[in-house]
Design a protein around this nucleic acid. Structure first.
Lengths: 281, 281
DNA sequence: CCGCGCGTAGAATAATTCTTCCAAATTCGG
DNA sequence: CCGAATTTGGAAGAATTATTCTACGCGCGG
């Protein structure tokens, strides 16, 4: 059996893929059959059971095990793990870079690795943003906010920078807005003056700031439409919102940047401006 | 057991998700816990085993089965199938969607297209960030700021949100910082108290805010090291800085989001904390 | 034409994983 | 404060799934 191949099992899908392509010709018939199937239907491998995959590829389950072992895996399950990992991290290229940076004993100094991680995390967040946001809801949020006389921005702590940015962008776009979250005392008074012709955009993540929730639901109770950005469908913000979006920022060691949220915020601001231009002219 | 719920198990993830959201209030504690976990970590459910998921969600495996049955499934496996199907679909259409987004103003409705453009722009910005930042300079910036007693954050207008975010992050990391840019009058006084043991991080883009430049150069003149983030080597900020970084955010129709800057800011904050931890312990 | 070796199928076995069940704990209504 | 109903934890068992093993078939060289 040992033709000198102590090849370590690749733990990265791309590498495995290359390896399979490379060795495809020299494999025996049934193993080649498995190889072809694996590259053509990676999802099937990721999710199926040995029996179901064997059926689909028209081989015996044991052939799958032998195939796996031929590539250095312990058994079929180990190989399957690689196929699953690929689906988990759905943007493989960025993920690779991250892995390189983190495992890189070429040791690009500590801080550079941290930067790399945050870049990778931001890429992931953006990908997630693209798939997680329902265009229709985005459209409807846009319309809601575009038809408001004044847009109230509600955010604290980690979300606060997003609100300040939107305040800046909206002002530039000549859209009236009012930011809550500065000097605690004044906020509530300002929000008390909000009338039903207004609308609010609230942002709150993770350990939800009580003031944000309180202010948002107070406005909601008075019939003011709320659009919100949060990180869980269970967020208390979601409850009182007319339209809400779930956005989970990927993290590096627990620290999250706001890259995707910023892209979202900016897109929303510009979309609102577009909508206004369209309807008012 | 039957409280009249002969509800058919949803076969499609979206429907299931809605159903979970709808019924979450009336669920008992542990089942609610599972519900939250399921919606927050759908991938985990898709891939894990009952035992591993139960561990992650901090419940018993049997609770997962009960949860599944409460939603009309035969058992946990049946529910898991729905989560897997979702990943499969998403993954297959993922390349398509990305292609749509990047090919620019293609099809999707107005506001969704805007969001897509901003996402694509943010991706480009991040790529650019990865290649444009010199690891050595990043390292040196980290060290400079890590050895400061207090870090002064200087930013206005469009850059201001970055400063507020860093202020938040640094506080969380127990690093003393002082933000300039709030009430104009006070800023200069606060900065006047800065001593040579401090350092500053200044951010300014494009049409450089005069106050930012003025404050940065005033500090520089007093021998306080300045790290800066700007968008051109010719920026007036670069002149008076000890270390500076050039970061150009890609734009959509002239509007820029701050995605890459946010990733940079967060990385810098964490790198500073790491550096402090390393040198002080 | 015969024997040798590699590859394969299929069943038996071993391991893992899901499900069921019941006692203990909790909650809710009286 | 008590009792009934519901929910929960945990472990035993049922089912599924992966792996191993042995015998058979096929091709190749002697």
């Amino acid at each position: 059996m040992d033709r000198g191949e102590i090849l370590a099992a690749p733990k990265n899908f791309e590498v495995l893929r290359e390896l399979i392509l490379e060795r495809r010709r020299e494999l025996p018939k049934r193993l080649a059959q498995v190889a072809a199937f694996a590259l053509d239907h990676p999802d099937e491998i990721a999710f199926g059971t040995a029996a179901s995959i064997a059926g689909a590829a028209d081989v015996q389950p044991s052939t799958l095990v032998r195939f796996s072992q031929a590539f250095g895996f312990d058994g079929f399950s180990a190989l399957q793990t690689v196929f699953r990992a690929r689906l988990r991290e759905r943007n493989s290229s960025y993920e690779d870079r991250l892995a390189e940076l983190e495992s890189g004993d070429a040791a690009p100094a500590g801080s550079a690795a941290i930067l790399g991680s945050f870049i990778a995390a931001a890429h992931r967040s953006l990908d997630n943003l693209g798939t997680a946001i329902d265009p229709k809801r985005f459209e409807s949020a846009t319309i809601t906010l575009a038809s408001a006389r004044t847009i109230h921005l509600i955010a604290r702590r980690r979300s606060y920078p997003i609100a300040t940015y939107m305040a800046y962008a909206l002002s530039q776009l000549k859209i009236r807005c009012q930011i809550a979250g500065t000097a605690s005392g004044i906020d509530d008074d300002l929000l008390a003056m909000a009338d039903p012709g207004d609308a609010a955009f609230a942002i709150s993540f993770s350990s939800y700031a009580p003031e944000t929730i309180a202010q948002a639901s107070a406005l909601a109770a008075r019939g003011i439409p709320i659009v919100s950005l949060t990180d869980s469908a269970f967020s208390p913000l979601a409850e009182c919102s007319t339209v809400w979006f779930e956005l989970v920022e990927a993290d590096h060691a627990g620290f999250r940047s706001l890259s995707a949220s910023m892209a979202f915020a900016m897109a929303l601001a510009v979309a609102i401006a577009e909508e206004r231009r369209r309807t008012q002219n």
